[in-house]
Design a protein around this nucleic acid. Structure first.
Length: 338
DNA sequence: AATAGATACAACCGCAATCTA
DNA sequence: ATAGATTGCGGTTGTATCTAT
């Protein structure tokens, strides 16, 4: 049986925030000897800490390949997409966000994204509209789309499990299937169905870019430029896209299969709101706008890949770019030939 | 200026998976 | 095959900082 690890409290080791001196000791030791063997490391490094504390400090804070500071809009979207797909599997999510730690992502989700989704009337646990918040979105059609999404999500998870088995070389045809690599995972389902866009992402895009505001009188989302309510439709709707830096711009034209069209004359307003609400610099917005207008180059490509509004605006028609972007994030092949 | 409440983030804890002898 | 050690992960807590009164 596994013995309980000796707690810092019991052994009299130091706890709490790290001092710069402790950081320096840990850093210089790891630079000289590398990390690992955390149990023995504190004593060798001259630290009155348990190995676990040293490991956490290194992996969550001192590691040189960690990016700190504000999350970009694209990072936010990635987190939301992957959370919808993977749930609270922070390490798996972090694997797709270069230089971000699972702890940082978890904190960001718990302190900001979760609350903001709740404010949008989205249940952050299920990524579905709360029953009483967006009345029209619980229509039969939307429920069907949600079911399709959930089915596809489960399938993707099952594929992840299969892939991890395959990579571990444990997928011999005669061997009994090992348990899934994560706790409390649901079993996969039989068929792959390309899902609709996540309601949560649609709402996110609109609110983040200022397309919608809440009407506190009837609890609905409203656009400042139209009276469209927040329901799925196939009519022209305001669209936005994102490039590598986040906010791009918007269009009131119906989007094509690849995503966005050009910017509208309202961009100044959106830019102002992006700076006001999200803290984006004017320089960033200028770059975004250029990418949006030209629709070419890396930023425009990223825009296409990340334009989660595409299939929404086109009435939930199949959209390879959107679904592939999610599956790519999770390293899952949509063809599913295992 | 003082205080309370809210927020953000670092760090800890316990459990489970994995490794190793 | 097994027990013990180690590592990884996710939930939770503690604390510093910010903001409103």
């Amino acid at each position: 049986m596994t013995q309980p690890q000796p707690s810092s409290q019991m052994s009299g080791l130091k706890k709490g925030p790290w001092t710069p001196e402790e950081d320096q000791k840990l850093l210089s030791y790891i630079r000289q000897h590398g990390d690992g063997n955390w149990r023995a490391l504190p004593e060798k490094a001259g630290l009155q800490r348990c190995g676990k504390s040293c490991r956490l400090r290194w992996s969550n804070y001192l590691r040189p390949d960690i990016k700190r500071g504000k999350f970009s809009l694209q990072e936010e979207q990635t987190i939301i997409q992957l959370h919808a797909l993977l749930g609270n599997r922070w390490s798996a999510i972090a694997a797709h966000l270069p230089k971000r730690t699972d702890n940082e992502i978890k904190n960001y989700w718990n302190t900001r994204l979760k609350r903001r989704l709740s404010e949008l009337g989205i249940d952050p646990a299920t990524h579905k509209p709360k029953a009483d918040a967006l009345g029209s979105s619980t229509s039969t059609g939307n429920l069907r789309h949600m079911a399709q999404w959930e089915r596809a999500r489960l399938e993707a998870e099952a594929k992840l499990v299969r892939e991890s088995r395959r990579q571990l070389g444990s997928s011999s045809s005669s061997a009994p299937p090992p348990p899934p690599p994560v706790k409390n995972r649901n079993a996969g389902v039989a068929h792959v169905t390309k899902p609709p866009c996540l309601d949560v992402l649609k709402a996110w895009q609109r609110v983040v870019t200022g397309l919608f505001t809440f009407n506190t009188a009837d609890n609905s989302l409203q656009s400042p430029t139209s009276t469209s309510s927040f329901v799925e439709n196939t009519s022209p709707v305001p669209c936005v896209g994102f490039n590598n830096d986040g906010f791009v711009g918007n269009s009131n034209s119906k989007m094509g299969s690849n995503g966005m069209l050009g910017c509208s004359s309202e961009n100044a307003w959106w830019a102002e709101k992006a700076m006001e609400w999200e803290g984006y610099s004017a320089e960033t917005l200028m770059v975004c706008n250029a990418a949006n207008h030209n629709q070419q180059g890396p930023a425009a490509e990223a825009t296409k890949n990340f334009n989660v509004g595409t299939c929404y605006a086109t009435g939930f028609e199949e959209d390879d770019n959107y679904w592939n972007s999610i599956l790519d994030l999770a390293n899952v092949s949509p063809s599913g030939n295992y």
